[in-house]
């Protein structure tokens, strides 16, 4: 399946958002996820099924003004 993850194209076998995070070694309570510009709650990642062409954002706390 072709996915855009944080702006980069990936070819990944993951079928759920949780599987994608694990495949890319994203781990931690400080991560936030969105698919196609909508928030996907932490609790829903395991059941959230990805589709070909989905745009995924994985964000972390960062300095800000």
């Amino acid at each position: 399946m072709k996915l855009m993850v944080n702006g980069e194209a990936h070819e990944i076998a993951a079928t759920t958002l949780a599987e994608l995070l694990a495949a890319l070694d994203y781990e931690g309570e400080w991560l936030a996820t969105a698919v196609n510009s909508d928030l996907v709650h932490r609790a829903n990642r395991a059941e959230f099924r990805l589709s070909d062409g989905d745009r995924i954002e994985i964000l972390s706390p960062m300095q800000g003004g």
Binding site: S60, P61, M62
Partner: peptide, 22 residues
Amino acid sequence: VTVSLRREMAGGWGGEKFWSLV
């Protein structure tokens, strides 16, 4: 203090380190 959310970048001090600091 104000903070933001961003994609993690190699070499930065965001992510877990910044989370712990804040």
